[in-house]
Simulated scan of single mutants.
Amino acid sequence: MEPQKVTVAGRDRRQSTTLVWVAAPLLALGAAWLPLEAAARGLSLGPWIVPLLVSVGFAVLVWLLRAATAPAAAIGLVICLALAEPRQAGAKINAAALTALVTLFVLTFAATRFGRANKELKKLAERRGGRRASQIVANLGVAALCAAMGWHGGCIAALAEAAADTVSSEIGQAIGGRAWMITTGRRVQTGTDGGISVAGTVAGVIAASVVVGAGGIGGALAAPQALLVFVAACAGLAFDSVLGATVERRGWLGNDLVNFSSTLFAALIVVVWVLI
């Protein structure tokens, strides 16, 4: 491996490790805050039994399917718990957020395996051992933090952007075809950071709409808010490509930080809009 590539790879690993060490405690605190508060007030912890069991089951399933490593599945458990915790009195689980998370998993799991042989020939396929802990934090961490804060719209926007980003990349790489650099419009090879294709973009937008729909079940998102969340997710998808074409290609940010920044961008659009 060339010295420059070694340096960039090392920088990416350091950034990813830092992201996990900074975000993991915040995610754990976010998931534990409500039950700890309830325990401190002498209230029953019964409402958290179902979310905990569901989260453990989801983490085990993800690990058995080899969609994530054991450490990644453990962080996924914490994230799932943060999303699944009931936010309304009398509710047993946050069905809308949990449905959106499961929908994201199904879409990305299928997209990752679609055309895998072709992607392996191009050396673009996802590693067979499953996603690493840093990838889980990068894609789902913002959604979990938004859920812990009670910002459902921001949570779903982050999940929708993460789904759109993964699906667009995986489908675009599998199908191939023409790709263009988002900042210059020049033709680039499929899989190039910042490169976009028609097939990948369409697939990503569809994935975002499906996750937003899942996150709005039971009236969790009114029609105007659902539209805002969808637009924010698509904006985050475009922002991810811009970051890929600029700071990632220059080696300033690794893919995990780019993904984290893009989900944060999508979530902030919704949160800031609602607050204003």
Results as ranks from 00 to 15, higher is better:
P3A: 11
K5M: 02
A9E: 03
G10C: 05
G10N: 11
R11K: 13
R13M: 13
R13K: 11
R13F: 12
R14I: 15
T17Y: 02
T18I: 14
W21I: 10
W21R: 10
P25A: 09
L29W: 14
G30W: 01
A32T: 10
L34H: 06
A38V: 03
A39V: 11
A39L: 15
G42K: 13
S44H: 12
S44P: 14
L45E: 06
V50N: 07
S55E: 14
S55R: 11
A59V: 15
A59R: 14
V60G: 05
W63E: 12
L64N: 08
L64V: 12
L65G: 09
R66M: 07
T69E: 10
A72L: 13
A73G: 01
G76E: 02
I79H: 00
I79L: 09
A84V: 09
E85P: 00
E85H: 00
P86G: 01
P86N: 02
Q88D: 07
A89S: 11
A91S: 12
I93Y: 03
I93G: 03
N94A: 14
L98D: 01
L101I: 13
T103C: 10
L104K: 05
V106P: 04
V106L: 15
A111Y: 08
A111D: 03
A111V: 05
T112N: 02
F114I: 01
R116M: 03
L124Q: 14
R128M: 03
G129C: 02
G129I: 00
R131D: 00
A133P: 08
I136Y: 04
L140W: 08
A143Y: 04
A144M: 15
L145G: 11
C146V: 07
M149C: 14
G150V: 04
G150N: 07
H152Y: 00
G153V: 10
G154P: 12
C155Q: 02
I156P: 13
A164F: 06
A164Y: 06
D165K: 13
T166N: 11
E170P: 08
E170Y: 13
G172A: 11
G172E: 11
G172R: 10
A174R: 07
A174E: 09
A179Y: 08
W180H: 04
M181L: 15
R186H: 07
R187Y: 09
R187A: 15
V188Y: 05
T190C: 06
G191A: 01
T192E: 11
T192F: 10
D193W: 00
G194H: 09
G194W: 03
G195P: 09
G195L: 03
I196P: 02
V198C: 09
T201Y: 00
T201L: 00
T201C: 05
A207S: 06
S209G: 15
V211I: 08
A214K: 00
A220N: 03
L221V: 08
A222C: 07
Q225K: 12
L227A: 15
V231Q: 11
A232E: 04
A235H: 02
D240N: 10
V242C: 02
V242F: 03
L243T: 11
T246N: 05
V247R: 06
R250C: 04
G251R: 06
W252N: 00
W252F: 08
L257G: 09
V258C: 05
T263Y: 01
V270F: 12
V270S: 05
V272K: 00
V274F: 10
